[in-house]
């Protein structure tokens, strides 16, 4: 073996060692990564993935949650919920709740926060505190208070209406009106939080941009529509998403406290209806089917979100 050949061989051996070392390190890294990911992954698997899977499984069964007998019924539960008037009513009501909350907890706070930043000169802090304060009160407490406020006989709302000669409706016992009352309870909770988010976003828009627009004689509305809105659209998008999900879940407490879904299912929503199927009627199959259907609906909306998101302006 010449000297050169020996050199080449030694280099090859070194290279081989290097590759092995590298592979070992990679292996060690893989273990480290797994360990780091494990806590979150395990929690996710146990508390999200498994319940969803189990839920799908349940939706194909007829079972009362206690009996040892579980009967496989195929898609019967799905067919049943779509012919069940209360469930269809709850879907319609859910749509109305979403609409009410998008108006009261997204559009209103958007304009109000713009007004607070660019139209009001003094007392911003005071307004901010006053408007945020209601968010701190628990939903259940608020629901009880609202049931007094809107009481047909003794509530201040009807007393006020009476003083101007209007006979107030039976808010808590009339379809339509009750949706409004429960919507207001959820608004009470969500409004202040969304307002703060919008305020932060609008304050983030550099003041020079507004000044530049003012020099061009842009009206307040134009400033909002052409500058503030596009630049805060990512926040608006976020608020839209959380308001949508709150509109499904936050009305549960007031429904439960004030009406229990009544009168005649006029105030129930899908989440409350699922609860009623499962824990009042012990129809776990139907509840699971309704939950899966709701999940599919929400997923559909998420796809819509993603299409929308492409039009949103993100900084950088």
């Amino acid at each position: 073996m010449t000297k050169e050949e020996r050199q080449v061989e030694r280099a090859a051996m070194r290279e081989e060692k290097r590759i092995v070392r590298h592979a070992n390190r990679k292996h060690r890294n893989a273990i480290a990564f797994t360990l780091f990911l494990a806590p979150a992954t395990i929690a996710f698997l146990v508390f999200v993935v498994w319940p969803v899977m189990y839920n799908i499984y349940l939706s194909f069964l007829e079972w009362n949650m206690v009996s040892p007998d579980k009967e496989f019924v195929g898609f019967a539960n799905y067919l049943k919920i779509f012919t069940d008037a209360p469930f269809l009513q709850s879907l319609r009501n859910s749509g109305v709740y979403i609409l009410i909350l998008l108006i009261s907890c997204m559009i209103f706070p958007y304009f109000i926060s713009f007004a607070m930043v660019h139209l009001v000169n003094k007392g911003q802090q005071v307004y901010r505190s006053i408007l945020f304060f209601p968010s701190l009160v628990s939903l259940a407490v608020c629901a009880v208070v609202m049931s007094f406020v809107f009481n047909f006989m003794t509530g201040p709302v009807n007393a006020l209406l009476k003083s101007v000669g209007i006979r107030g409706p039976n808010w808590l016992n009339t379809g339509g009106y009750i949706l409004f009352v429960i919507g207001m309870v959820a608004t009470w909770k969500i409004f202040g939080y969304n307002l703060i988010i919008f305020l932060a976003a609008i304050l983030e828009v550099p003041v020079e941009l507004i000044e530049a627009a003012k020099l061009e004689k842009a009206s307040k509305f134009k400033i909002f529509w052409r500058i503030i809105f596009p630049l805060t659209s990512s926040t608006a998008f976020y608020v839209f998403v959380i308001t949508f999900s709150h509109a499904l879940s936050y009305v549960f407490t007031p429904i439960s406290v004030i009406t229990a879904g009544g009168p005649n299912y006029k105030s129930t929503n899908v989440v409350y209806q699922i609860y009623e199927y499962a824990f009042k009627n012990f129809q776990s199959g139907r509840a699971a089917a309704a939950a899966i259907f709701t999940l599919i609906l929400v997923m559909f909306v998420v796809v819509l979100y993603q299409a929308l998101e492409k039009k949103v302006h993100y900084e950088n």
């Binding site: 550099p206 020079e208 530049a212 630049l231 302006h313 900084e315």
Partner: peptide
């Protein structure tokens, strides 16, 4: 007016 940070509308 030309602003120090240009104040171009980023969107």
């Amino acid at each position: 007016m030309v602003f120090q940070n240009y104040a171009l509308y980023p969107h």
